[in-house]
């Protein structure tokens, strides 16, 4: 037993253990999602996060230690965003034919995301700093952190709200859009990417390639648009 403890304490100092466990947790989560027929509730991000959270808690590992290993995966978010150019290029002809609907979808989705979140949170008693933190929750994390900081909110909490928004969008998009009768994959993808950034986009790619490409467009345009409109909309609620 001491041997195991020694080996563990040696391994736990390097990034290998948690990098490996992150990949293994995802492989298992993806397998479960596959077996569940890619139903929205069997979201691979949610399953993997739950598994790893339980492992960190059980082993008493601080997040900073975990992140030393997981940062290699986290870093790929940037290159993956750049790589969204690949599906956008593949869908270029269809995108050109849909410029106006895309702008309308992102514009309306973006304004509704910020306004409704602020209205609901204020009605339920959120203070000014919290509203500033919540306003950019539909944008991709680095943008949301920047916007929240600029408005006087908390960057750490902003990142948390962004992830929660992404998982919420990935979970509800399919049943919601189906219930409302939306059949156009372009509209479905764009709306999810606008409201739920990269996690919504990842979900859209699982459902349909053109939904994924339009989700990528929605995510990119919404990041720009929210940076511009969030300060003005926030002022209405202060």
């Amino acid at each position: 037993m001491t041997e195991f403890a020694e080996i563990w304490s040696y391994l736990a100092r390097g990034p290998l253990v948690w990098l490996t466990l992150t990949l293994l947790a995802y492989v298992l989560a993806d397998f479960i999602a596959e077996k569940a027929g890619r139903r929205p509730l069997a979201n691979p991000v949610l399953i993997a996060v739950t598994l790893l959270g339980a492992m960190l808690w059980a082993s008493g590992t601080p997040y900073a230690t975990y992140f030393e290993g997981a940062q290699f995966v986290h870093f790929l978010l940037g290159p993956a965003t750049v790589a969204l150019a690949v599906p956008l290029h593949a869908q270029g002809a269809r995108l050109k034919k849909a410029v106006l609907p895309v702008l309308a979808g992102v514009g309306v989705g973006s304004v509704v995301a910020v306004t409704s979140a602020l209205a609901i949170a204020r009605a339920l008693g959120a203070d000014a700093a919290l509203l500033a933190t919540l306003a950019p929750k539909s944008t991709t994390a680095p943008v949301a952190i920047g916007i929240a900081e600029g408005l006087g909110g908390s960057p750490t909490l902003a990142a948390v709200l962004v992830i929660l928004t992404g998982i919420t969008g990935a979970l509800i998009a399919t049943p919601l859009l189906t219930a409302l009768g939306f059949k156009d994959w372009r509209a479905r993808g764009l709306a999810v990417g606008t409201a739920a950034h990269g996690i919504g986009t990842a979900r859209a790619f699982q459902v349909h390639p053109s939904a994924g490409a339009f989700a990528g467009i929605g995510m990119g345009l919404n990041a720009i648009l929210t940076a511009i409109i969030a300060p003005a909309i926030l002022r209405l609620f202060l």
């Binding site: 609907p101 309308a104 309306v108 509704v112 949170a121 008693g125 919290l130 709200l161 409302l180 606008t194």
Partner: peptide
């Protein structure tokens, strides 16, 4: 407050965005 705001506004934004596109 945050949970309610996130769930409701994400649903509204998805529905409104898809509606505007269509």
């Amino acid at each position: 407050a945050l949970g309610a705001a996130i769930v409701a506004s994400t649903a509204l934004a998805i529905a409104a965005g898809a509606g505007a596109f269509v």
